[in-house]
Design a binder for these strands. Structure first.
Length: 173
DNA sequence: CGACTTTGACCTGCGC
DNA sequence: GCGCAGGTCAAAGTCG
């Protein structure tokens, strides 16, 4: 894990490690997941503003394809997935501003999306054998959070949830 | 030495 | 009110 972590969080890398291999074709369903929170995750609505800047490909069709890169830096460990987004929604009694969730088929949890994240927590969750990891954007003043966990039913998939919108353009601004 | 991860403790919301 | 589960904090450790 350490090796992968270093590779994927410290800086965008140009090459894909050997252990990061992807299949190309089969799409998965988010049914179970969506059913749990149907109101909170309206599928395939609009992309939050903060993500458009760096995720132009994603903005086209809200699906993460096998050839997708989050930005042009050659990051290639995001490949296949479905994107869902919730706007100003409520989860329980809490207001959630912008929540973006997608699931990617990846052997590593850490998906380099062009931003720099600092891990602040790790938790075992009840219905999954896999831990959930919590990250904050490490840019000062940016309160975007991200939650990463493996799909308990298919550990080949990684569920990533972003909360909030970056108030900056990139990891170093 | 600074930035970051790790990890147990703490906090809070929710259901019973 | 109590207990559980999820989310966050913060001290200590690690790494470049």
């Amino acid at each position: 894990m350490d090796d992968n972590y270093q590779n994927y969080t410290k800086a965008p890398i140009m090459s894909t490690p050997n252990e990061t291999s992807f299949e190309v074709s089969d799409f998965f369903e988010l049914e179970d997941w969506i059913n749990e929170d149907e109101d909170n995750y309206p599928v395939l609505s609009s992309m939050p503003v903060g993500y458009n800047n760096n995720h132009s490909q994603m903005n086209q069709n809200y699906m993460v394809h096998n050839d997708m890169d989050f930005n042009s830096s050659g990051i290639s460990n995001l490949h296949e997935g479905t994107f869902v987004q919730g706007g100003n929604n409520r989860i329980g009694r809490k207001e959630v501003r912008d929540k973006v969730a997608f699931k990617t088929k990846s052997e590593v949890e850490i998906l380099d999306d062009g931003f720099k994240w600092r891990k602040y927590g790790k938790k075992m969750v009840k219905n999954s054998p896999n831990p959930r990891n919590y990250y904050k954007c490490s840019v000062e003043g940016c309160a975007v959070k991200k939650r990463v966990e493996r799909d308990n039913e298919d550990p080949r998939y990684v569920v990533t949830t972003y909360e909030g919108i970056h108030n900056h353009q990139g990891p170093h601004l």
